[in-house]
């Protein structure tokens, strides 16, 4: 019997903001703190906390520097972060597949249909 996809979810990655950070870092290769804050609509403190969790888990690498006199913080995805993102996306897709198989009725407005072929969710084209 195969393991239920819920059991494979990583508590660190299975969270809206942290998954968002990993998705953006994967797509951008390198992303600045300000872009993350705007895209995820977070305060600097809140974003900083999530980044610390990801950095401590070895999923992102944070570089601090200056551009002129302005401090800049860049976030890079580590290979472990890339793998964690891929695993999370795969688990989410399997979870959706199992839910759809269990409930034959079409998704409601609150459950938008996801185009799982779109590499977006972490896997680039």
């Amino acid at each position: 019997m195969t393991e239920h996809p819920v059991n494979g979810l990583d508590d660190i990655v299975h969270q809206r903001v942290r998954l968002g950070i990993l998705t953006i870092a994967h797509e951008a290769r390198r992303v600045e703190f300000g872009f993350l804050r705007t895209a995820l609509e977070l305060t600097a403190g809140n974003l900083g906390q999530h980044l610390s969790v990801l950095e401590n888990a070895g999923l992102v690498h944070i570089e601090k520097g200056y551009e002129g006199k302005r401090p800049r913080t860049w976030v890079n995805l580590t290979p472990a972060g890339d793998k964690a993102l891929g695993d999370e996306i795969a688990h989410l897709k399997r979870l959706i597949q199992q839910v759809e198989q269990a409930t034959p009725c079409p998704p409601t407005a609150a459950e938008p249909t996801i185009d799982t072929s779109e590499a977006a969710a972490g896997r680039s084209v």
């Binding site: 969270q15 809206r16 951008a28 895209a39 459950e111």
Partner: peptide, 22 residues
């Protein structure tokens, strides 16, 4: 907001946003 549909939707939206910014 942490349900699988919502998380994948949000991921997809963010991916598009990054692509547009690039």
């Amino acid at each position: 907001q942490d349900g699988p549909y919502e998380l994948l939707s949000a991921s997809r939206r963010l991916t598009r946003r990054v692509r547009h910014a690039q």
